[in-house]
Amino acid sequence: MSPALLILIGVLFSVGTYLLMERSLTRVALGVGVLGNAVNLLIVAAGSRPDEAPIIGRSGDLTDPLPQALVLTAIVIGFALLSFVLALAWRNWSISENDEVEDDLEDRAIARRAEWHSKHGDAPHHEDVDQ
């Protein structure tokens, strides 16, 4: 495996992970794309030696065609995933005019109930937490 490819895979992984942890959905979508490419490159780089193209009728040192077949399938799947995340981001934007991932209201209510509880030592009435 060439060191340049190795470094590229590493960079792609870190960029993808960083983007995936963003709150903005567009960046998450980009993260999905970058991460997918990192994984695909990893499979090709780790799975096969760089040799002659494996075409029927050729002989000599042929590279293993299986990783390429796997990656081809993975690219198609990754493409579908990316378009779905983009569609999701678009829908999110058209509903709420921003593309941030929102918190879970029910979770927030429970967190607030716990805070309330520790302050007042008594279970709050439901209305107090839900507004």
Binding site: V28, V32, L35, V85, R91, V101, D104
Partner: peptide, 13 residues
């Protein structure tokens, strides 16, 4: 969409 986003991103990962 909100819950779906969490689900999709986690499962993509």
């Amino acid at each position: 969409i909100r819950a779906g986003t969490t689900y999709v991103v986690l499962n993509v990962l």
